[in-house]
Nucleic acid binder design. Structure first.
Length: 796
DNA sequence: CCAGTGAAGTTTTAGACAGCATGTC
DNA sequence: CTAAAACTTCACTGG
């Protein structure tokens, strides 16, 4: 189908696509148009990665906008949200506006209401529904990218429920669901009342094969000799072979450690192929990488990058990741060894993809379990760069002939699994049942069940009773913890006043759903329940926090609060390594009085271990808030910079939520919570909190200023400029900071730096727990007012 | 005596969303 | 129902 044949798009859209070199539609895109994508009809497009799914979404959204509507594009990852935003922003050329909203992107409701296309993560959309964003009822088109993730045990139910809610809000909504090729795309289409567009078509050919011995056998029967020299590994040989053709390779492995070790070896394989220009560019990239973070991960990554290779996993800081991804796309890096992060994330295609490990450790299964077909297909789908490679190759590795046959059957000839809803699990229902009640989608038990009946789960299950019984279990839990009130037997749609701020449309349509059913039990969210729903907390997290705050007899310490939020289901705990159960058991005895709530008995093995794992996570947060350096933290807790930032970010969120909860339950400790949160946010001790609020001053500069005797923004306005200059590195930096502090004449012209007392120890500030001694934050830790700040964690 | 090698034993194990209101070194 | 690679340690070899 030619682009010119398309109608209903905004003027300028067709020529825009033509300018981008798009003349005609790919077959699946044409099918989608025939199925009504541009006429506002719902559809499920189950097509391979990189076969133009985004174009299907774009055509649907643009035609919806041209009809006067508004579109929402739901993505599974923040990184994809910004990738899509960048892509759609090109449409501003013909007057289509774009906005993004995720947990870390700025966005106000008012502003989003003015955008034609809004890009958001599924959780963010869920949160917007819970908070009653008015503009959601203006939506006419919703795109759900990677909709097969409904199958995900943790995050799938959110997507499923959110789609059901958006449809309930606006029954005429066009839903465009983009999916990988899965076994039961038709079932998903039925659920969404959508047309199915299924295709295996790819814009460039993908050859799948297995390497065994000295050759790859491909699915089309062809073979390619790739001899393995002596003691080298198969992946080394495969990478060397493809890099010799001046193409790049992606190697998927099953652990971070494997990714790093493989990168070390592969970088040496690739290094001889580099020319001088590339080497210079790589050296520069390596410097950028080292600048991102002060940690071993950063150093190791830079070392691999200098030789043209890299590793990629979630322990990397996000800046690391984008530097690596961009350099790989620019063909500067020849090989990346990666964990599954890369298969799910932003687009990073390679001529050859090697899936080295097809089994992954799973403690719940008690050993190595084979990856899902879908997951392996997603990895293999990264092979072949449209427009750059003549074809893509995806290769699995076999060590025996039997294994080779097995791999063909298991992955190459196999169809991807069915998507199965995971909604009927307690943790998922806990949060979604509360949200459904609190935001007015249901006000009776039957209304709730009717809403649940609109989910994919209901359409898939034969066990009608299961969802009902789990729902009742969850309702018991929510009632017991004072999130929901139940009134049995009373008829009528009474709802609490607090419901009034939820979308009215939501309420009325939900009421419609409930009309047929008997209103045997009225459900109402309490004020606390509303707050929990809006804060986006797992009710179990909220209960733990509430209980912890209520049980505190005196002002909770930062450590107590950090351990409290760390044991919440919303925080993914650090793992206790061998020997650490003793170590943290000992720390537990030392800190017992500081910890909030009831500790499990030591004889309850699993629960006690979780408690200690939370203690370890809390200790990490405490060390961060005591100004321990990044390299030290990452080393002590065996984590990467990305993990550290993730933990800190989660802690900020949970402590912010804890502060709101504290106010809600009239706790005396909201100030203590606020302070603990501020310390985690900036990674500083209490005495620096004021300084750190000055723009341009972070944990390091604040410490340097403090050591020089500058203790507040007011001091910055009055103190001798030479002292400020002496404490900071650059003249320009010092000027900016003075200006931000509101100093009348911030100019540093002609000012001489004055060194005051030990201000020359950048990076040394922090908890020196290596010796197990009292912590030192510069020279004046002994003046720290809080006694809790003086004991160091870690080695004891 | 010491560097180098290799066998044997030990350790570890993917990922990443969210409130609210603005800005690191 | 199910593991494997990386890392550590330690004994031994050859110079």
């Amino acid at each position: 189908m030619n682009l010119e044949e398309l109608s209903g798009l905004p003027p300028g859209a067709v020529s825009h696509f033509q300018d981008e070199g798009i003349e005609s539609l790919y077959p699946p895109q044409a099918e989608a148009v025939e199925a009504g994508a541009t006429d506002g009809d719902s559809l499920v497009a189950a097509v391979p990665t990189a076969s133009g799914k985004t174009m299907i979404a774009a055509l649907s959204m643009l035609s919806a906008i041209e009809r006067g509507g508004k579109a929402l594009y739901i993505v599974p990852l923040r990184a994809l949200a910004s990738e899509k935003k960048d892509e759609f922003e090109a449409y501003e050329e013909f007057g289509v506006s774009v906005g993004v909203t995720t947990g870390n992107y700025e966005s106000t409701d008012d502003w989003l209401a003015t955008r034609d296309i809004v890009v958001a993560t599924s959780e963010k959309v869920d949160s917007l529904v819970r908070n009653g964003a008015d503009w959601l009822s203006d939506l006419t088109c919703v795109v759900s990218d990677e909709v097969h993730l409904i199958d995900d045990r943790n995050r799938g139910p959110t997507l499923e429920v959110t789609l059901a809610k958006l449809r309930a809000l606006n029954p005429a909504l066009q839903v465009v669901a983009l999916s990988a090729t899965v076994g039961n795309a038709g079932e998903i289409a039925d659920w969404l009342d959508a047309e199915l567009v299924a295709s295996d078509w790819r814009p460039i050919d993908l050859q799948m094969g297995v390497h065994y011995g000295n050759a790859i056998s491909f699915d089309d029967g062809s073979k390619r000799e790739v001899p393995v020299d002596g003691s080298e590994s198969q992946e080394d040989a495969l990478v060397r072979d493809i890099v010799a053709e001046d193409a790049s390779a992606l190697v998927f492995v099953n652990s971070r450690r494997n990714a790093e070790a493989a990168a070390r070896r592969l970088a040496n394989v690739v290094a001889p192929e580099l020319d001088d220009e590339e080497k210079a560019a790589l050296d520069e990239l390596a410097d950028d990488i080292r600048d991102v973070s002060d940690s071993e991960t950063s150093t190791d990554l830079a070392a691999a990058v200098e030789k043209g290779g890299a590793f990629h996993h979630a322990g990397l800081a996000s800046e690391h990741r984008s530097l690596v991804e961009d350099a790989f796309r620019d063909r500067l890096l020849k090989v990346i060894s990666a964990t599954p992060t890369l298969a799910a994330g932003v687009n990073t295609p390679a001529r050859r993809v090697v899936v080295r490990d097809w089994r992954r450790f799973d403690s719940t299964a008690g050993g190595m379990t084979p990856l899902d077909v879908l997951e392996v297909h997603q990895m293999m789908g990264r092979a072949g760069r449209p427009g750059l490679d003549p074809y893509g190759e995806a290769v699995l590795l076999a060590k025996s002939h039997d294994e080779q046959d097995d791999l063909f059957d298991r992955y190459i000839w196999a169809e991807a699994e069915d998507v199965r809803s995971k909604l009927a699990a307690e943790p998922a229902l806990r949060t979604h049942v509360l949200a459904t009640i609190a935001s007015g989608f249901a006000s009776t038990r039957d209304g709730l069940l009717s809403f649940m009946n609109e989910t994919l789960y209901a359409s898939q299950t034969d066990e009608r009773g299961r969802l009902e019984s789990v729902t009742d279990t969850v309702l018991d839990y929510l009632e017991r913890n004072d999130f929901v009130e139940r009134e049995g037997g009373t008829a009528g749609g009474s709802r609490s006043g607090a419901d009034a701020d939820a979308a009215d449309d939501a309420f009325t349509s939900a009421a419609d759903l409930a009309t047929e059913a008997n209103r045997d039990v009225d459900l109402r969210a309490t004020n606390l329940g509303h707050t929990v729903s809006r804060l986006y907390l797992d009710p179990m997290s909220a209960a733990e926090i509430v209980h912890g705050l209520e049980s505190a007899g005196s002002r909770p310490t930062a450590m107590g609060l950090y351990q409290l939020i760390a044991r919440t289901p919303n925080m993914y705990e650090l793992y206790l390594r061998s020997g650490e159960d003793d170590k943290y058991g000992q720390l537990y005895y030392e800190l017992e009085d500081e910890l909030l709530g009831d500790a499990p008995s030591e004889y309850e093995d699993n629960r006690f271990e979780d408690w200690l794992a939370a203690l370890k996570t809390g200790a990490l947060l405490k060390d961060w808030a005591d100004e321990m350096d990044e390299d030290r933290l990452t080393e002590r807790y065996s984590i990467g910079p990305g993990d550290l930032r993730g933990k800190v970010e989660t802690a900020e969120w949970l402590l912010g939520a804890a502060e709101t909860l504290a106010a809600e339950i009239d706790s005396d400790w909201s100030v203590a919570v606020r302070e603990a949160r501020a310390r985690v946010e900036h990674g500083v001790r209490e005495e620096l909190l004021e300084l750190v609020s000055v723009r341009g001053v972070g944990r390091k500069r604040a410490r340097q200023l403090y050591q020089a005797g500058v203790e507040s923004a007011a001091d910055l306005r009055t103190v001798d400029k030479g002292i400020v200059l002496g404490a900071l590195r650059g003249r320009k930096t010092a000027e900016n900071i003075l200006e931000n502090a509101g100093r009348e004449d911030p100019s540093m012209d002609g000012v001489e730096a004055i060194q005051v007392d030990g201000g020359d120890a950048p990076g040394a500030a922090g908890v020196d727990a290596g010796s197990g001694s009292t912590s030192e934050a510069g020279s004046d830790a002994s003046t720290t007012p809080e006694s809790e700040d003086q004991s160091s964690l870690g080695d004891f």
